[in-house]
Design a protein around this nucleic acid. Structure first.
Length: 224
DNA sequence: GCATTAACCACAG
DNA sequence: CTGTGGTTAATGC
């Protein structure tokens, strides 16, 4: 089987693997499809695989003292859960599919082999983790210092500019989940979206969003 | 004090 | 699951 060799959504890191390593990957990698709303891995469960999202959207979320907090929305192709798989025996957070998702489970021992033996692979992984960490820092300040409308504006811009690359899209989240993502109550999210709609900043119909005034939304996000 | 912000509650589609 | 209105607590002027 050449499933890994000819994979259409291979990671930058996996592109650095040599022939024999690709073969090793094929022997230790299991591909699974998830429907929308299924748990890919669960907080507090034992984990011995690195997850690679080939296609689809996933929410990464952690239980807070009060409510769930969505740490990030991940879009394939991307690795998921490297920190929690390498850094602890159990998952420190959960991942749930928001769309149809196609993922690969890579055995942690194989993954470790690659890191130890292939410096180019390791470098790509580190690069990825660094970028992730930097974006966490930014999200962290934003989350803590911006007002609720600013956080919602940022979330909408994130979906438009980074996930869908379009001004019109369907939110993959319920109001309550959008609250978990932006650190708002679901009621606040409803109200803020209704206001944006009324002010002609967006056009809202259920989960359907059309961004009308992109620059104003950006301004709201910037000012917080 | 008074205004603003945002969470919580309750109830209705 | 969503939207809305009333209430409430914290914060700022």
């Amino acid at each position: 089987m050449d499933i890994c060799k000819h994979c259409q959504s291979k990671s930058l890191a996996a592109n650095k693997l040599v022939e024999s390593e690709i073969e090793e990957l094929e022997h230790s990698c299991v591909s699974v499809d998830f429907l929308q709303g299924e748990i890919i891995f669960k907080q507090d469960a034992l984990s011995s695989n690195i997850i690679y999202i080939r296609t689809g959207l996933v929410k990464v979320h952690i239980k807070g003292p009060d409510r769930d907090q969505i740490l990030k929305i991940a879009k394939g192709p991307t690795y998921l859960g490297i920190p929690t798989t390498l850094g602890d025996k159990v998952n420190n957070y959960s991942a749930t599919s928001l769309t149809h998702v196609s993922v690969c489970f890579v055995d942690i021992r194989t993954f470790r082999h690659f890191i130890e033996n292939n410096s180019e692979f390791a470098y790509e992984i580190i690069l990825d983790l660094c970028k992730e960490e930097l974006s966490y820092y930014h999200r962290c300040v934003n989350q803590l210092q911006k007002h609720s409308a600013g956080r919602v504006a940022d979330a909408l811009l994130f979906f438009a500019d980074e996930i869908y690359l379009s001004k019109t899209f369907n939110l993959p989240l319920s109001r309550s989940e959008l609250g978990d993502l932006t650190g708002n109550s679901r009621e606040s999210v409803s109200r803020i979206l209704a206001e944006f709609n009324q002010q002609q900043i967006i056009q809202l119909k259920g989960r359907g969003i059309a961004i009308i005034n992109h620059s104003l939304l950006k301004e709201i996000g910037k000012k917080g």
